[in-house]
Amino acid sequence: MKILLLAAPCLLALAVPLYNSDSPRLFGFPFFYWALIGLVPVSALFIYAVFKMDGGK
């Protein structure tokens, strides 16, 4: 489970054909850019979740 949570954002980041397009745009950003940049905080949340599951404080 923990491995899956850590792997998920990595696999999404590498699934380039999923986000390699201009539309839909968000605040003027083509999809390619807002998807990639938006994935960064999402990946941090996944790691934080694993940290909590490991009993981290």
Binding site: C10, A13, L14, V16, L36, L39, V40, S43, I47
Partner: peptide, 10 residues
């Protein structure tokens, strides 16, 4: 550089 820096933290 962005997918690269997403991969490094896990």
């Amino acid at each position: 550089a962005i997918p690269y820096t997403i991969l490094i933290y896990p």
